[in-house]
């Protein structure tokens, strides 16, 4: 499992010798992992944790207990934020699809307009979108367009561009080139090649990916409220600020319900597409 370190350098070794070296190698790697993990645990648990302030096991149980008195009175005021969260996820996914069209076009090696300028640009945009966390995107967009649902939608969209366009670009790279050649041969222009040659081949994969991403975007848009966009995250933030831990639990439950609804819808949608 972990024996990845060089065995290639030494030819003409007997089987027993190779096996012995491999075992030694495995032990060395396991020991290294153990040392690193031990040091991490020591730094986390001993150095950085303030055990006295936590108040012992009783204190922790006391805090936990406050989460269990669920504040059911909050249910009516959760409906509109839950709807907002759902809408934010849907619009964000839609906008993400729109943004990922050019990115996928640039980043697919066989259809990119220019292999030296646009192809690296497309790849870079994919990596950039995936490597920045949605919270950071939301912070940037709250600065740019102000509070409300819009920065949340834009953040969700930017974050989903990377995944959608990466899968789409890979699907475009793996298409069967024959229909494309056939359409070119009968004189189809660039648009007709894309619309009739490429699109039908990649559509099932792309739509499946979009549905999957929508499912993930629901849980992303549920936290956008923490940094100033609307939705369930805002209610979570307010309940937290009021130390109403029962309400916090209820919001978490509401998120779970939303995700379950999303999972059911995406299950049927995926079945309909594939």
């Amino acid at each position: 499992m972990v024996a990845a370190v060089g065995l290639q350098g030494a030819p003409y070794l007997s089987y027993v010798e190779r096996k012995r070296r491999r075992r030694v190698n495995n032990w060395v790697i396991a020991a290294c992992i153990a040392v690193v993990l031990g040091w991490c645990i020591w730094d986390t648990v001993m150095v950085d944790t303030d055990w006295a302030r936590m108040g012992g096991a009783l204190g922790i149980i006391g805090t936990l207990e406050r989460f269990f008195w669920i504040d059911w009175g909050l249910v009516p005021s959760l409906i509109v934020p839950a709807l907002e969260t759902m809408m934010m996820a849907t619009l964000g996914t839609l906008l993400g699809c729109v943004f990922s069209l050019p990115v996928a076009w640039f980043g697919a090696y066989n259809v990119t307009p220019n292999r030296y300028i646009f192809y690296p640009l497309g790849r870079f945009l994919m990596v950039l979108s995936r490597s920045i966390h949605e919270i950071i995107w939301a912070l940037l967009f709250v600065g740019a367009v102000g509070l409300g649902a819009l920065p949340g939608i834009l953040a969700v969209a930017m974050r989903s561009v990377g995944f959608i366009s990466k899968i789409t670009a890979e699907a475009i790279e793996n298409i069967d080139p024959k229909p494309v050649e056939a359409i070119r041969a009968v004189g189809g222009n660039q648009f007709q090649v894309m619309y009739y040659g490429i699109l039908p081949q990649i559509l099932p994969v792309v739509i499946g990916t979009i549905i999957f991403e929508w499912d993930i975007n629901i849980r992303r848009s549920a936290i956008m409220g923490l940094v100033g966009a609307g939705g369930l995250g805002l209610v979570f933030f307010r309940q937290m600020a009021m130390f109403n831990y029962g309400g916090v639990t209820l919001v978490v439950l509401a998120v779970l319900v939303l995700i379950a609804i999303g999972e059911v819808i995406s299950h049927y949608a995926r079945k309909a597409v594939i």
């Binding site: 730094d43 986390t44 648990v45 950085d48 944790t49 303030d50 302030r53 936590m54 922790i60 805090t63 936990l64 989460f67 919270i135 849980r219 992303r220 549920a222 936290i223 923490l226 979570f236 937290m240 831990y245 916090v248 978490v252 998120v255 779970l256 995700i259 379950a260 999972e263």
Partner: peptide, 25 residues
């Protein structure tokens, strides 16, 4: 698996910070 996947990691962080206090733990 579904429960730990559904709740975003930032929400988990806030919940754990509330119970255990700030810090790496």
């Amino acid at each position: 698996i579904m429960g730990s996947r559904s709740i975003h990691e930032t929400i988990w962080t806030i919940l754990f910070v509330t119970v255990l206090g700030f810090g790496m733990l």
